[in-house]
Structure formats: structure tokens, C-alpha cells
Design a protein around this nucleic acid. Structure first.
Lengths: 359, 359
DNA sequence: TATTAGCACTCATAAAACATGAGTGCTAAA
DNA sequence: TTTAGCACTCATGTTTTATGAGTGCTAATA
């Protein structure tokens, strides 16, 4: 599914079928147990018709190629980041249908009626529950939907509350300070004017049009235009900052995080939402799922973690979501969960969107 | 400041001035270093003109009374929860003015213009930063402010978006499904009607009045009334569920939490926002700061923590806020921080409120 | 009577010594 | 090319052995 990291490494040829099977067995076993895998274990658990000595030779080979390591001489083998990479890129395969999730699906569908941010919050918990790791959902930079209505409410002489509404029912608001008092009557007139002017536009178009109108305007609502435009900018920034993290405590459950220092660093990173956003947003270039394994991770606070990222679309806007967990995670399952959730979320948002289209 | 736990214990009399000083010294030293305090340390660090032997006798006495313990025979003394309780109730004193915070104050003031939830989010981080523990802010069960405006936006035939606005600029919204189509024109008429009917009422009054109007209503807007009322209920529940936790990772820094199990339990508890709300809300009976020390804590997941809780008022509504940290915390400082923040937050909200009053 | 010096005793903690066994790499035979 | 065999390594766990901080108690002292 991911390509970036495999593109300039042609490793599919330099491994015999047998070696690949051994690598898979080692990784499978290690993912399952968390214990370094010795040659004897391979003989017992898997059906190679080979002796432990032969398997030792093969593993030594795989180690030379950088796919496995040794914690120390007398220990079994465990995968390196590179080993995991190979495993994901060329060994395991994915099926789309996930009948095992269907029980949980009903619950997710129930979200449909909720508020959009609540939906994302619950989606992050959904990810966490299914993956047994931390789930993250980042709201799209641009809220979904088309312009539907703008309302100005005068709070006090100079303070005016601006409310934007999209046809999907998203509500965004901002208090602005006008330099001079404006009557509610004038505000209503302006609102009506904008409703006609901006109807059915996407939000980027709205901002664009506001800017044009602002420039055309000779007098009258000049100040109001200017404030509305600025508000639309600020709202956009504010909305795009929303991150939802579910099941962060699951991280602690992983036996790999015995080291308090690592846990601390990780939770610090979780608190720095801005970084998280950048991390996820940067990660997702196109469609599909992308996996970052340990050291591949752009943020070094997270180099003990792996990251499985996907995207979902809300109309024209694109949001990101993913799972953060230890490097030793059940990639196949997690990738399927992320894939499933991203499509689920897209579908739910799509339905909301469709509802709004013919108002 | 707190009384609950000291009311039925008359311990102020049964301790000599000297014993009290020793208890204070032990607790001070323990809070500072985290190490059990031996008699020799007391001689060195504090100016009792007593030998270590005498201090040993006094400490043995304090132990008998239940204020101190021994981890083992050959270790120094450390406070029990009861010891901390005595310490807080009758030994330390608090000053209101906190010049050391003033540097941070400016930053907090800057919050004033932000959205209310962002304000609370930042307040939780403010608490965390100043206390070096986790900071929690719970939104008031009832949003501040008075009725200002209601807006109905038709999204699609049967779906209507209801937006409530208070005179403080709080915006709450909810999508409802009408059984039959209603024109935007009718919705506007209804909105105008409600604006006249509900102006300047508090939100509980609004709900009350809506219910009355609903009963009086023979026909016409009956269904709309009913939906508006139900929306107001649901919004209330939703709004009251907001909890903001800042600096949760600070918890991990405390050397007391070496035990991964404890950390995990705690973070689980943090994720269960509903419980947190109950915890804080139940804790604050009246004005003032309340302290829960270790086992005094109503939730056993948190019996290794202490809790310093305060309240703030937003108009007629009351919200809670506090700090959660290890039992060995710098109570004096933390109490001052919570006290300070609660008054700061009240003041900021009050100013917002005043602005709204003469619209 | 209150305080203190002195001393035997306790026990957590750290270091050292030792045993165990899982798992390896290598060699030589099959 | 595979495998049996064996010496070797080294993390992990256990036992042993100091070390010393800190106590409680007793008897001397002010």
C-alpha cells in the first residue's frame, strides 16, 4: 500500500522464497510473542522441513542483509525496522472485507447523527478500540460543506458575533470588535446581502469572493467586509487545529514501553497537537495507507513507535487519521483497521454532505 | 480552606507546639526531597535545639498518633495521609497575593478574546504549568450568559439546524429532524417570535419558558416548539460534558509513579471524562478550595493521587477546576495556584459577561 | 523530669559470586 | 546442501555478603 520507502530498494529479487518464508515466520512469531525467536522455535512452530542448524544459517544470512538482529549472541532473532518494512511491502497481503468488524460497525453508524467533532472524537476511539493502540483523527483543514448562511449578532455596541453555517450543518463562529457601533438592522441587511452573494460556494471560494467584494466596495459595509473576511481566515485556522486522540492509555499497555522515559516523551508529543497535525498531514500524500516504522518516523520523539496513517475525505476537504503504537504491532490488522475506518468515515461524511446538497 | 475532613477530628489540641513544628519539618522535608526523613536530617536542616534522640522520641509519638509512618524499621519517617491532612488544616497558612505568578498573568489575560472553550483549555494548561501537575477544568453545567438570539437554518426538507446564541457570544447548535418540511420563511418568523419571547432570560428560564409555550400552543409551531425544547435539553447535556485536561504528561514526571500499573490506571481515569466530571463536581460544595489527599479520594483509581479542587463562576453558572498530582505535592503552592486560577477565570468570564449585559 | 549519649539491632540496598540454560557459530560428517 | 554435535557466550536469576542509615532502648546527665 505504501510505496515511498520501497521504491529505491530492489529487495524483492535478492531473497529466495525460502528465506522470505523464514523472515515472515520470525516476524510473525515476534509480533505475536514479543520474544526473540530462536531456531528451535521455528522448527517447532512452523513447518519448514529443515533442521535448526539450517534455519540458523538462513537467519544469519537475513541478519547480514539487515532484516534481522540479535540483542546479544545467545539470543534469538528479532526484526529490524528494515525487516518490518520488507515484511509489509512484499510479504503480507491485505483483504478489504473485514467481517470481524461488522459487530462494531453498527456502533459507528450510530454516530451519524452526532456533531461532526463528536464524530471524529468517537472515530479516534473506534480506531483505538479496534487496533489496541492510540487512535488519532485530524479534522480537515477546511470544514466540509458549502456556504449556507451567515448571521451577525450584536452583543454590545462594538462587539459583533459572526456565525457561519454550511449546508451540512457545520457552525463556526467568532466574536469581532468593530471600531464603531452598527445597528442590528444593518447587520441583518448585510447578512441577507451576503447570503445572496455567497450561496452554494465552497469555503475557499467564499473567502475568495469576500476578498473581491471587499476590494470592490467603496464605502458602506467596508469595515464589516473586512472583519468578516478576517474572521473567515481565523476560523479556518482554528478549525484546522482540531485533533482527537483516543485510547492514548493503550500505549502504556504495550510491554515495549517499560521505559518511563519513552512513555513520557510520547505523551509530551501527544500534548503537542500542532506537531501531531504536521506529522499526520505531511505523511499523507495521496490516497491509501502509509506506514512509518520506528526510525522512519519523522519525529524523533516517536522513533520507538510505528505510525499507520490514512486519509478520509469530507467533500472536497481531506482529513487524516491513523494509529500510533509500538514498532512491534500487528501491522496487517492495524492497516486493515485504518483502511476500514478511513472509508467508513468518508462514507458517513459523504452521506451528511449529500443531505445538504439539495437543501 | 477545606473543612470537611477536619471537622470531626479535634487534633489541634493534642499536639504541643514543639511536636507540631517537628511534624511540619518532616513534611516539608519529605515534600522537598521525597526521601524518608531521619532524626539526623532534622537536626541538620532545622533549628531545633534538640538532639537526634529527642527528635526520635517526638517522631515516635507522632507515629503513634497516626501522622507519620515508617516504610521499615531502619528508615526515616514520612507523612501519612492523616499527617498531610493535619498539615494542611492547621499548620500551613496561605497568602492571597502571588507576585510570582504575575509574569504568567499577562499571558492568561490574553486569553480574554478567545472562544470560551479555548479559554478553558488554556486555563487547564495554565494550571498545569504553574503547579507542575495535571490541570483540569470542567465547563459549567449551564453555559454563561442570557438568551440573545435563536436562528433556524433549513438544511434540507426535513433537517433543521438550530443555533442558540447568548449575549456573551456563546454559540450552541443542534441539527434536528422535523417530520415534515418547513419553509425558511416560517422558520424566520418563529425565530423572531422566540427572540421577543425569550429575550434576557437565563438559560434555565429559557427552557422553562419554552415548556410553558409548548403547553399553551394549540397548533401552528407545536412541532417546532417541541424540537426546540428538546434541542435545548440536549445541548445542555452536551455542553456540560466538556472537560479539559492539561499537562497530563507531568504526572509521569513525578518520581512516585514508577509503577507502570499506577500510571496506566490514572490515564484510564483521565480518559473517562464522565468520571472526572463527577469527581470534581461532587467535590466542590461551596466556595473555596478543597483538598483530597490520597485515600480520601472518592475514586480508588486515584488513591495514589491528591486532588486540589476549586470552583469558578460564569455568571450564575458554576464550573470546577483543579489540579491532580501525587500525594507528595507542594500543597501550599498548588492550593495558591488553584485559588489564583479560579479567581482569574471568574474574573475573565465576568468581564465577558458584563460586556454582554448592555447589548 | 526532661534530655542526651551510647549502643545493639534491623533491614533495605548494592555489590559480588555463582549457576542456569537458551541460543548461537562453527566444524565435520552424511 | 543439509545436519548432527559441541564448545562458547551471555542475559537472567539466585544466593551470599557487605554496608550503613536509622531506629529503639537504656542508662547517665542536667
Amino acid at each position: 500500500m505504501s510505496a515511498k520507502h520501497s521504491i529505491n530498494q530492489v529487495y524483492s529479487m535478492d531473497l529466495s522464497e525460502r528465506s522470505r518464508k523464514v523472515l515472515q515466520a520470525v516476524i510473525d512469531s515476534y509480533i505475536e510473542t514479543g520474544l526473540p525467536v530462536g531456531s528451535a522455535v521455528l522448527v517447532k512452530k512452523y513447518e519448514f522441513n529443515l533442521s535448526s542448524a539450517t534455519l540458523r544459517n538462513i537467519m544469519a544470512e537475513l541478519e547480514e542483509l539487515g532484516y534481522l538482529t540479535h540483542p546479544h549472541t545467545s539470543a534469538g532473532r528479532m526484526p529490524t525496522d528494515r525487516g518490518y518494512r520488507y515484511y509489509i511491502d512484499t510479504i503480507i497481503s491485505f483483504e478489504r472485507e473485514q467481517p470481524s468488524f461488522s459487530g462494531e460497525l453498527a456502533q459507528a453508524e450510530a454516530l451519524q447523527s452526532g456533531e461532526i467533532h463528536q464524530l471524529m472524537e468517537e472515530a479516534s476511539q473506534f480506531l483505538a478500540r479496534l487496533s489496541h493502540h492510540a487512535g488519532v483523527v485530524v479534522a480537515p483543514a477546511e470544514p466540509e460543506g458549502l456556504y449556507r448562511h451567515i448571521e451577525f449578532v450584536r452583543l454590545r455596541g462594538n462587539e459583533v458575533l459572526i456565525i457561519f453555517v454550511t449546508n451540512t450543518g457545520a457552525v463556526m463562529n467568532k466574536i469581532v470588535d468593530m471600531d464603531e457601533a452598527i445597528s442590528q438592522h444593518d447587520l441583518n441587511a448585510f447578512s441577507g446581502y451576503l447570503d445572496e452573494e455567497l450561496e452554494y460556494r465552497t469555503l475557499p471560494e467564499v473567502r475568495q469572493r469576500l476578498l473581491e467584494l471587499l476590494r470592490e466596495e467603496k464605502a458602506g459595509f467596508l469595515k464589516l467586509f473586512e472583519r468578516a473576511y478576517r474572521a473567515s481566515q481565523e476560523i479556518r485556522e482554528r478549525e484546522s487545529e482540531k485533533v482527537f486522540i483516543g485510547g492514548a492509555s493503550q500505549i502504556i499497555d504495550s510491554p515495549e514501553f517499560t521505559d518511563i522515559e519513552k512513555i513520557r516523551a510520547l505523551f509530551r508529543a501527544f500534548e503537542d497537537k500542532y506537531k501531531l497535525i504536521k506529522l499526520l498531514d505531511k505523511s499523507v500524500a495521496a490516497q491509501g495507507i502509509k506506514v512509518f516504522i520506528g526510525s522512519e518516523n519523522p519525529y524523533f520523539e516517536m522513533q520507538d513507535c510505528s505510525l499507520v496513517v490514512g486519509s478520509y475525505k469530507a467533500g472536497s476537504a481531506i482529513g487524516t487519521l491513523g494509529v500510533i503504537g509500538p514498532v512491534r504491532m500487528h501491522y496487517k490488522q492495524v492497516i486493515q483497521v485504518v483502511d476500514y475506518t478511513s472509508r467508513l468515515l468518508s462514507r458517513i461524511l459523504d452521506e451528511r454532505l449529500k443531505k445538504g446538497i439539495d437543501r
